[in-house]
Design a protein around this nucleic acid. Structure first.
Lengths: 150, 150
DNA sequence: ACAATCTGGTTCTATTTTAGAACTAGATCT
DNA sequence: AGATCTAGTTCTAAAATAGAACCAGATTGT
């Protein structure tokens, strides 16, 4: 056995996505980044992650163009990690995970964080998949078409 | 160091979700299940996963109520693994990952599978987050409210 | 200006997880 | 009945993770 199995060239976009961000920590780092966390030590404190793991994950996410480094906004000599456009594209992945977690992973009354519309201060509405006509579409109304050229 | 860090009691639903399905294989198993894969040997062949890992993942997903076993539909003595309602709730997580992968992980013209509306045979439309008024809502219009009771 | 502390790492070791091969009991096919 | 298939378990080697220790450069306090 060589290294971990790679899905980097799979024809399935889900597999490719998981090849990049499918480990235990990456999506939590990205969640924190959406939440305004920028500096190495902030990620470390927020996540309780070992420094070595954090360094390797930040490196990987940066290499994949999900994070980029920039001079720190407080004009110190340090750098900070920011989401790129590609990284911000993961917002709905985080939202979908959040809504599923809220639905299935809490006992009634257990405290939890929630995602709020800044304008209204109301919890955001549910993600939904819709047809071209705006009708709700569940997994049962879909299928995977094996492979085709883009 | 003891075991892998656990987020099973985190106040953040994203962390709890990743504690259950945040490894390299679980979401691929679930993707296959959405795609109609049911039997141990089918998952094994489809994923190229080691038997031991597959067995432990199926056990974990079953313990968490995402999969359940049922007598095989072909009336053999074997069992099959089916998504529960909780498991089907992960559909939008898969869709979000798929759309992000399609957007950012392929070079032009590279072959890929795609998700089709069974009725129309057209690719499904994009997931979007909307306000109560039906207006598009991006991550910039949201914030995480720390903790509250449900 | 100098010492103390903070930041963002790297390195080291122990433990855990993963990959893959070999093996197995029971079910099914011929 | 014998061969093969199914759904695993067990074994070993390699890789990843956790945590502690260490370190150079930046910053802060005096």
């Amino acid at each position: 056995m060589v290294k971990r199995v790679s899905f980097g060239h799979a024809p399935c976009p889900v597999a490719r996505a998981l090849d990049v961000i499918g480990d235990w920590w990456s999506l939590l780092i990205i969640r924190d980044a959406f939440d305004g966390v920028r500096r190495f030590s902030e990620f470390e404190a927020s996540l309780g992650i070992a420094k070595g793991i954090l360094a390797s994950r930040l490196r990987n996410l940066t290499e994949h163009g999900i994070l980029e480094t920039a001079p720190a906004s407080d004009r110190s000599a340090y750098r900070e990690y920011l989401l790129t456009e590609k990284g911000r594209g993961l917002f709905l992945v985080i939202v979908a995970l959040r809504q599923w977690g809220e639905d299935h992973l809490y006992r009634p009354g257990e405290p939890r964080s929630s995602l709020i519309n800044t304008e209204t201060n109301e919890p955001i509405s549910r993600l939904e998949l819709r047809t071209g006509d705006g009708l709700p579409l569940s997994w049962a109304g879909t299928r995977v078409k094996k492979v085709d050229a883009a």
